[in-house]
Each structure stands twice: as structure tokens, then as C-alpha cells.
């Protein structure tokens, strides 16, 4: 009797948990998995100019992407930009996150708000701000010329550098916040123990802080990498029409060329590349740190 009673309670708990998970599951299924499945089906269709989309079952769109140097160069550029931005965010963000996590000042909340504040401004608005700052007659060039450091305005706008600056600025808060919460969970006395045992700051960081912060580093890099791979507004506004990345390319195929099958294929290539790279990095890092 008692056993049966216990069993029922357990079962009851299980079904309550399941019913709580249901809404999110349904939302993910309808909002994400179904469109992806449809998109994947589209990517196997044929495109006939003038006739929009023709039902078919072909890998022609994928072949087209991987045999055309232009598209490959766009993929390569996107990867390069995403990797660079992620590394830059990590290098810039880690010290900032560390200071935020360890500071004793009563202005700590204010500092965190200062990090989050940029997220209140949308990507497009922020990119517009960078346009005025980086343009030939923009703030930076005007200042540098006034100071007599340069004669000619620097070409920043509509270059890869402008896009890099823009994406790093957009992604940095995500990296900082992720790292900060993980570093805060690392006891200060563990660092002090390393110091007392003879490790200088560099050794302590490498042997103790980084390995313990690894879950945060991983989460932060994955987050910023995905955001950078899929960046849209920043490359469009700061890179200009000649600077192509995967995000704008997908949009172009759907909205301007009306080529849904090819747009679907590019979407899938972008998604697969993102997932593969993220997983590889994850596995490599885990092998290096977590099984130790």
C-alpha cells in the first residue's frame, strides 16, 4: 500500500512537470522546427525565373552555392568576421567581466546597467550612430584631422573594419554579462590560494581562473559567434552594398530575387556552418578542460 502511494505521488509530480514544459515545447515546435522543416523542403525545390518556385527534389541549389566563388567568398568572409568578432569580444570582455564580478564598489549595479544599456538601442539605430561617427566627415575623422594626425580622412565606413567594429560593439555586452555571472561564482579565495602557493597573476589566470570560467567562456563565445554569423543590420548599414555577408545574402534571395529555393539553401548552409563550428569548439574545449 505504502509503496503504491509513493509511486502515485512520483507519477503525479512527473505529469505536473510535463504539463509545465508543454507550452514552451509547443511554441518551439511550431515557431522553430516547423518553419525549418518547410524551409529545408523549399531548398530542394527548383527555381525557374518568372515561375517563382517549382516543386522538385534536387540538390541543385546547394551545388550552385558551393561551386560559385562569389557565394563561397561570402561564406568565408562571414566565418572570418564571426571568428574575429568572437575572439575580440572574449579578449575585450574578459577583463571587463572580471572587474565587474570582483568590484566591491557600491556603484556595481550602475556599472552593470552601463554594460546592458547599449542593448536598449536596436542594432539598426546603433549602426546608424556608427555611420555618423565613422564617416569621412564623421566624428573620428574630424577629430583626427583637427588634431593634425591625418591629412586625408580614413576610409572606415563601408569596409570590413567598420563591420568588425560594429559587430564587436553589439556583441560585447552579451559576452560580458555571460562571463561576469560565471566569474562571480568562482570564490575569490581560490584565486588567493593560487597566489599563496606561488602562482603570479598570469599563471593563476591560466591555471585556475580560465579553467573555472570555461563554462562561461564557452557560453559567451557560442552566443556571440551565433550573433555574428547571423548579423544583418550591421553589415548592411556599415559594410555597404558591396560588403556581403550571409545574413543579408539570405534576405536578398528571398526579398529581392524572389528565389526561395536558393534562399532556403543558403539559410541551411549558414545554420549548418554555425552549428558545426559551435559543436567542434565545444568538444575541443571540453576535451581540454572538463574531463581533467
Amino acid at each position: 500500500m505504502a509503496k503504491a502511494g509513493t509511486y502515485d505521488i512520483e507519477k503525479g509530480r512527473g505529469s505536473t512537470a510535463a504539463s509545465l514544459l508543454l507550452p514552451a515545447t509547443i511554441f518551439v515546435a511550431i515557431g522553430l522546427l516547423v518553419p525549418i522543416a518547410i524551409l529545408f523542403r523549399y531548398s530542394l525545390n527548383a527555381f525557374v525565373p518568372g515561375k517563382f518556385m517549382v516543386d522538385a527534389f534536387t540538390i541543385e541549389n546547394y551545388v550552385k552555392f558551393f561551386t560559385d566563388p562569389f557565394y563561397l567568398s561570402v561564406l568565408w568572409r562571414t566565418l572570418r568576421v564571426a571568428v574575429f568578432c568572437t575572439v575580440a569580444c572574449l579578449i575585450l570582455g574578459f577583463p571587463l567581466a572580471y572587474v565587474l564580478a570582483r568590484t566591491q564598489t557600491r556603484f556595481k549595479n550602475l556599472l552593470i546597467i552601463a554594460v546592458v544599456l547599449p542593448l536598449f538601442v536596436g542594432n539598426a539605430v546603433r549602426a546608424a550612430g556608427w555611420m555618423t561617427a565613422l564617416g569621412n566627415k564623421g566624428f573620428f575623422n574630424a577629430m583626427l584631422m583637427k588634431l593634425g594626425l591625418i591629412d586625408q580622412p580614413l576610409e572606415i565606413m563601408y569596409t570590413e573594419n567598420a563591420v568588425l567594429i560594429g559587430i564587436v560593439a553589439v556583441n560585447l555586452p552579451f559576452m560580458v554579462l555571460t562571463l561576469q555571472s560565471v566569474i562571480e561564482g568562482i570564490s575569490r579565495s581560490v584565486e588567493e590560494a593560487a597566489f599563496s602557493l606561488g602562482a603570479g597573476p598570469a599563471t593563476m589566470t591560466r591555471r585556475v581562473l580560465f579553467p573555472l570560467a570555461m563554462p562561461g567562456i564557452l557560453a559567451g563565445t557560442i552566443l556571440t559567434f551565433i550573433l555574428a554569423m547571423n548579423a544583418y543590420a550591421t553589415p548592411v548599414l556599415l559594410g555597404g552594398p558591396k560588403f556581403q555577408m550571409m545574413g543579408p545574402l539570405v534576405y536578398g534571395q528571398f526579398a529581392q530575387q524572389n528565389n526561395w529555393p536558393f534562399g532556403g539553401a543558403i539559410s541551411f548552409i549558414l545554420m549548418t556552418a554555425t552549428i558545426l563550428l559551435t559543436m567542434t569548439a565545444n568538444i575541443l574545449v571540453q576535451r581540454r578542460y572538463q574531463t581533467r
Binding site: S189, V190, A193, A194, F195, S196, G200, P211, R292
Partner: peptide
């Protein structure tokens, strides 16, 4: 001198062991 050059053995209240080692 910084702590890493003092050769003091330290034991903390919360042990402060390196959890990944």
C-alpha cells in the same frame, strides 16, 4: 612583496581547493 613571493602556507575557511584538479 606580492603573495606569490612570500612562501606563506594558507588555509582558508572555505577550503578554497581547486575544484577542477
Amino acid at each position: 612583496l606580492p603573495p606569490w613571493k612570500r612562501n606563506c602556507g594558507l588555509v582558508f575557511q572555505n577550503y578554497a581547493l581547486f575544484p577542477h584538479m
